[in-house]
Amino acid sequence: MSLTPTQLDLISKELIQGGIKYQDLYEELLDHYILAIEDRQAQGQTFESAFGEVHADFVNYKRPARVWDHYGVWKDYTNGGAPEFGIGKLQAEYEENLKGEISKRHWQIMKSYFRWPTLVTTLLVGLFTFQFAYLVPKQYFVWIIFTCAFVPVLLLLPQLILDSRLYFLKKRKFVNSLKISTITGRMFLSLSLFSLFINITNMSNILFEYNLHKQNFVTVSACLTCFYLAYSLSFYQLYSERFKVSLR
């Protein structure tokens, strides 16, 4: 027995009220609710009874025991606004797990560039970059570093544009998906480091009237270029390895 639009709308509202804010998790839970309720209805249950059963298990996920405080009032201690139980807690744990694993995997990939035998390639690239730094004018090096810092943005941009378009066409409830949101965090790290580099250079010029000696600039530029090359390659590897979302 298929659910009516009103019933589907009720399920959707309960998920959103429960704290769901990512499209991929929303779709997964919605699909589960619909299948579970339809199965129960096929066995003779009413929609309300079936929905109550399915919903109760998600809502009671990690629900803590209520505490009798000093004044004899039952109280649930909150965690600074973070969900303590239910669908929101499920989402928060998923987000935390995914962010942790992405971060761990990203640094594993970065470290692999400094292990044998990839270390040989890394050293050759470093040497080539250092030699190249003498020949290329300073302003072009800043553009090279800027391009490398923005490679992660370019990788994610098509998916972000498509998701935003579908959201504004009301074909999605949320702009963000959890996977894209978590890998975007790694992208912002790259941009933050680039911003830090620009600010440190400007501040040293303004505050200390210190212009980097040509030799020092070559060394710094070569090191930064190598770092950003490694970061961009590692980001691409991370993205295509586990978190690539197909354009649809």
Binding site: E27, E28, L29, D31, H32, A36, V54, D57, F58, N60, Y61, K62, L90, E93, Y94, N97, L98, G100, E101, R105, R242, S246, R248
Partner: peptide, 25 residues
């Protein structure tokens, strides 16, 4: 129970043990 299954699936997915694919049904 759904409250036990989905956290397990998500954890295994985050660890790279499982991968996911979407289908329109």
């Amino acid at each position: 129970t759904e409250g036990a299954l989905y956290p397990t699936l998500h954890k295994l997915e985050a660890e790279g043990v499982l991968t996911t694919e979407n289908a329109l049904v």
